[in-house]
Design a protein around this nucleic acid. Sequence first.
DNA 1: TTCATTTCTTAACCAAAGTCAACGAAAATA
DNA 2: TATTTTCGTTGACTTTGGTTAAGAAATGAA
Lengths: 190, 190
Amino acid sequence: MENEIIKYLSKYMTISKEIEEAIIEGVYIRSYKKGTILLAEGQISDECYFIIKGCIRSYYIKDGNEMTTDFFTEEGSVTPSAYGKNIPSAYYLECIEDTIAGVGTPEQETEMYQKFPEGESLSRALGETIIAKQQDAFADFKMHSPEERYLHLQKERPDLLQRVPQFQLASYLGVTPESLSRIRKRLSKK
Amino acid sequence: MENEIIKYLSKYMTISKEIEEAIIEGVYIRSYKKGTILLAEGQISDECYFIIKGCIRSYYIKDGNEMTTDFFTEEGSVTPSAYGKNIPSAYYLECIEDTIAGVGTPEQETEMYQKFPEGESLSRALGETIIAKQQDAFADFKMHSPEERYLHLQKERPDLLQRVPQFQLASYLGVTPESLSRIRKRLSKK
DNA sequence: TTCATTTCTTAACCAAAGTCAACGAAAATA
DNA sequence: TATTTTCGTTGACTTTGGTTAAGAAATGAA
């Protein structure tokens, strides 16, 4: 299980044996039932997750409606924006499938940084990559119509169309469930 | 001038006298004429900016049209997503006003990290803050109609409505210039 | 200042998305 | 399994935004 985490991190920098061991020691593995709320709006967040198996959804609640902002699946990491900051979270994190994840805490992170300062470079590099990806995703969103966004999702993350309820995909794509249904109908006729 | 940078960074962590001096030594101040392209699509980016005075716009070009993704003004920092990564930039950076900025380079940064490892914590903290802000902005965008987004902009960054051409605001808001014109007309009648 | 270019506004038309409501299908739960 | 709730689809209607085109206003350059 921990190997998955090392594999993931290796994409961003060379992981020494020592760091590898520190990570394996520090991170603990947990499993959650489908429907588990990992973080609720207003809560202080003190955990971040690395998904080994399953799917986590992040969403806001606006006017009583859920507004899905992202889906995280295998090999994805979820760091709540309020993580370790002692400020209440603006959004929810929910396991929409039975999920197994590596769980990290600020304490464990700080401890690791003290032992291995290189860890901080890693976090920084990872953070920069996330920023770049988010910028691209946002620009892409603005540049395309809902229909184009659906097609793009179909191409890039076809698994989501299978494993995620449609009304959650709808808000993720920035349309109503009715619209998404119509988009799918329109596309199936081509 | 350098004081502005220190003031900005102080929001995110305590800056010791030593770091302060290192920053002042390392960062150099430049001024750019309105219209200067700081970074073009396809270019390798090796500079990041801290705006002391002026305005920088980031935009993609899609089907020959400019697609504005952000405006950075006084006390804002601009780190191209490809900064220091040796990969070509996906977007442009342009000064849309005469601009004075502090300029940082990867070399200078690395040098600073070696002298002051705390600098890395600072970068990390700053990066996390940027990620959180981006997430919120993206969620907000999806949650609101173009009209609501315009009102929000009017409330949060009223200066932009004055200093930025409307067609650039339009793509930033995710609508055509014609639509933005109509939205403004609609709102003026209330 | 004058001329040319760019930007903003308006109008007409069309396509797409939002809204409201109804109904059947699927899934969760007792 | 039966019952209840949630989810997905469809239809009718309204609102909004995209497109195209034209002209007015502002901007910048000669």
